[in-house]
Simulated scan of single mutants.
Amino acid sequence: MDEVAGDDWLAVRFEENRSRLLDVAYRILGSGPEAEDAVQEAWIRLSRSDGDAIDNLGGWLTTVVGRICLDMLRMRRVRPERPVGEHSPTLPDIDVPDPELEAVQADTVGLALLVVLQTLAPAERLAFVLHDMFAVPYDDIAPILGKSPAAARQLASRARRRVQGTPEPPAVDAARQKEVVRAFLAASRGGDFAALVELLDPEVVLRSDAAVVSLGNAVPVVSGAAAVAGTFSGRAQAARLTLVDGLAGLVWSYRGDPQVVFSFTVTDGRITAIDLRGDAEYLQGVELASLKD
């Protein structure tokens, strides 16, 4: 296509995506004027690019807007912002908003949600908004953040807890967790019921997702130290000690492919929860690293 026709085609395609891009930018930034600026910058970058080489224009534009918004969020840390009030909760003093537009946008997203989003770190906010609000896969979010898909998943999960009002989990002693999980694996393989009970909190909970239950050897929930110890005693022969998102856990694999991941919550030296997960999406995003048994 000639240059003029190409520009016209890009402009039409861009306008088809504009409303969604503004929605993405507003939910990340919380400011109508800044969202407009981010989308305009995306158009400038698109107009300077080879449109014919972009296979998925909508995805490309979402990625570009995400990167622009991330940069804008980080820049806010070096300049003051207007406190939450009658306008957008993150509107810089230099902006002059359209009150009616701001009201409509805030009503659409929810002012309470915008206020909570403002408390998140830039990377957390972007990962949460793109994944939870716009269903962007972690594989596509990861390059924007310069992190792995597993790290992007963790950022979104952390943000989700904040948004839902769930308190952050306490800091974990990684070395102590490895020691406890290693002892748990040895006791399980050796059928040492008493040692397993000693390692488990009296109110420990064992949870299995639907994929694990479908394998036929698990139920959704088992509670209590004796019941959980009985579930594992003499088993876990094929499980291997593994770092699961940076913390000691176990993995059962088949022909080299992880099938079930065992995640442990250890508090004061005892296991308070064990989660067995075999969901395909989870297995694709979780970060695993081998440890010596």
Rank of each mutant, 00 (worst) to 15 (best):
R79A: 12
V65G: 04
A38D: 00
G66T: 00
R161I: 06
A103E: 14
R20M: 14
H131L: 04
A106Q: 15
P202S: 10
A121R: 11
G256N: 13
A152Q: 05
L126V: 07
R67P: 02
P137M: 05
E36C: 13
R277S: 10
I94P: 00
D192A: 11
G246W: 14
V261I: 06
R13D: 12
Y26E: 12
F14N: 10
A218I: 05
P83G: 11
V204S: 06
G234T: 08
L111D: 03
L22E: 13
W252D: 15
V222R: 14
P220Q: 11
F264E: 05
R27T: 11
S214N: 04
M1Q: 12
R277L: 11
P92C: 10
L126C: 01
R76A: 05
G246Q: 08
D293H: 01
D192V: 01
L200R: 06
R45F: 02
P220E: 12
F128Y: 07
L46V: 07
E287M: 03
L10H: 12
V39H: 01
E124S: 02
R76V: 09
D279V: 07
D95T: 12
L199S: 07
E287Q: 07
V78T: 03
R240P: 11
T166M: 14
P122Y: 03
R158F: 01
S233V: 02
